[in-house]
Computed example of a mutant assay.
Amino acid sequence: MSNIKEHQTMNYDTQMLSSSEEDIEKAAALLREGKVVGIPTETVYGLAADALNSTAVSEIFKAKGRPQDNPLIVHIGEFSDIYKYVTEVPENADKLAKAFWPGPLTMVLPKRDIIPMTTSGGLDTVGIRFPVHPVAREIIRRSGTALAAPSANLSGSPSPTTAMHVYNDMNGRISAIVDGGDCAVGVESTVVSFDKDGRVRLLRPGFVSLEDIKGIVGEGNAVCAKGVTEKISDGEKVLSPGMKYKHYSPKANVTILCGTIEQFTKYVSAHNGDRVCSMIFDSDANGFPFKYITYGDTSEKQARELFAVLRSLDDMGAEQVYARCPEQTGVGLAVYNRLLRAAGFEVVNL
């Protein structure tokens, strides 16, 4: 997938737009015409198109080089819009929406026929999100429709958290990019589905943590899906984007090392080379003897910085990356989940 840029066949004159009222209206007009536009959200930048227009949605898949069975998340501009697109809102879904919307939470629910199968990845369900980012919400409002918007990167590469990241991946592939500044959260939204008994199933961790969800619906009413920390087979149907394929990956091979900084340093010493780089915590940097890049100390900072750091590894010419294993609770689970996929599940317990 990393060579997709070299084989691009699309040739748009990609406009760089600001978040001024005039430019937001330009973006909305392009979306009404069935075009694809890169837009900011609080999580990562999204590649937006009219969610109800199959032809427009197909352009997202083409721009990203994304597998057609990978469902897209539909972004709405008002809470009440959910009832236009889904047939049922379970009690726990209503509780979570009241607690976390607008915000970085996506809920997978039975879809109405108005949502094309192209958008839902061939599923009878659809992921719905109500973003908090004011520019995203205004673009949705002015476009007059819900927007399908996966992350605005080439499929498989690290997600974009700045407009320039989007430009680097999508210049010539889409009509425009709206610059709304750096993304505050830095990892994609939390995705949940609901079992027949109403229990919440975490499909993709994000800023809204499993612990946060349990705090709203009760300890016994929320569980983590196996795909969060385990590999899913290629033939298996998934309800959420980011569960099946290798994602978020730089060109370098990434390996997660789980252990103390002393164990980590010893392992890197035995496997070091000119093209080797370590991804360590900020607090590890003082005296670390090998080439490194830091990605924060707290889970929240790691979430904000992770994708930018993964992208910068390509600029550094790294071929092998050893990453310190983050926490696996709270927002840390989201960081670990993204790193797992960037590493193709290559983990070494020291």
Rank of each mutant, 00 (worst) to 15 (best):
Y322I: 00
N53T: 11
S175H: 11
I73E: 01
T9W: 11
V321C: 03
T229P: 02
L154K: 13
T9Y: 10
L310D: 02
N11Y: 03
N349W: 05
R173K: 14
L147A: 11
V166D: 10
R201I: 14
A97E: 00
V36H: 12
A318L: 02
E138V: 00
G180C: 04
V108M: 05
L239Y: 13
T329Q: 01
S155N: 10
L30C: 06
F61D: 00
T41D: 07
T55D: 15
V200Q: 08
G287Q: 10
E300F: 08
E25Q: 15
S175Q: 13
H247W: 06
V57L: 04
L30M: 14
R324H: 13
A97G: 12
G77F: 07
F79T: 09
K237T: 14
V254E: 11
S80P: 01
L310S: 02
L210A: 12
A48E: 09
A163R: 07
Q263K: 12
N70R: 06
D169W: 14
G181D: 09
H165G: 05
N168Q: 15
T14Y: 07
K64C: 05
S2L: 05
V335L: 03
G220C: 10
N253T: 14
V135F: 08
T329G: 00
E88H: 14
S193N: 15
A93Q: 01
Y322L: 00
L147G: 13
T87H: 03
V74P: 02
T294E: 00
C277F: 14
I82F: 11
P131I: 03
T14K: 06
E346G: 04
R129F: 03
R201Y: 05
S159T: 06
L31F: 09
I4R: 05
D195M: 12
V208M: 12
N221V: 05
G344C: 12
T14W: 12
P160L: 10
V191D: 10
R173T: 12
S269P: 02
L203D: 00
D124E: 15
V36T: 15
I114H: 09
P134T: 06
S20Q: 10
L30S: 05
A136L: 06
K266T: 14
L210R: 07
H7M: 08
C183G: 02
I293G: 00
G103M: 03
Y248R: 03
R304V: 09
P150V: 12
T43A: 11
S269M: 05
Y336N: 00
P134G: 05
V191W: 04
P40A: 09
A27Q: 08
T229R: 14
A308C: 03
A334R: 00
